[in-house]
Amino acid sequence: MIDNSTEIALSLQGISKIYGPSCPACIQKTGPEMGTNICPECGSIVACADISLDLHAGEILGIVGESGSGKSTLVKCLYFDLEPTYGEAYLSYYGNGRLNIFSETSQKKRYIRNHIMGIVYQNPHMGLRMNFSCGGNVAEKLLTADCYHLGKIRHRASELLTKTEVPVARMDDLPRNFSGGMQQRVQIAKAMANNPPILLLDEVTTGLDVSVQAKVLDLIKSLQWELGISMLVVSHDLGVVRLLTNRTAVMKNGRIVEIGLTDQILEDPQHVYTQLLINSLL
């Protein structure tokens, strides 16, 4: 439950995702202290465990960590792509922050996905339908929110594509024929179509060349300033996190090992793993 007096947009409480049979020892015998996320008793994989954090309204929160530390699992759980094994999440925009969104019906979950959240995946193939045109992709998000006016849909799509610097002339082209950076920007346009108050960004700049990367980061930053969207940014790139985020959580072996102001974490890391991470920066 979210206390209404605070400015919390999203609150996660004890989210865990375990693949496999799972036993009582799973949580104790895995984690950064054990140096593994595979349970020695039953062989289950603890992708993430006991994740609790709050995302404030209008804030960008970063999640960093090595590959396999459970960052993407967490985001996918939040977008209902995966079902968490345990845990609760509350949205201030849904049911006054009193309803655990994971225990809602699939229709309600679909409503939350379509009206309250947007997601940008690392791989545009996951977020876009490659056999639909750019405009169609943006339209899909609008149609799920019951906008059945073709002119309005086209207007909104061209507005968003302009904002994300995709040439409007290419609105009716298939994203399959676009470069990676352009596909990523179409994905951002699609995610923002319904003005969602919360945006989940999963490794959005990975695999893009630096100039395109800079453009995408610029775009994200300006979206936050203009529209005050709360964002959860997952990245293994500390540069991206430094540029975008106010606060950062560091994950290892499926747990959060440290959370705090981004500057503080980058300048004065407390946890051994965070120190290693910062020192590994070239």
Partner: peptide, 19 residues
Amino acid sequence: HAEMDYSKLWVYLYEDIVR
């Protein structure tokens, strides 16, 4: 059908009109 998730069919109609 169960979730009344018909956006894909709507996008199909949208694409038809655009194309």
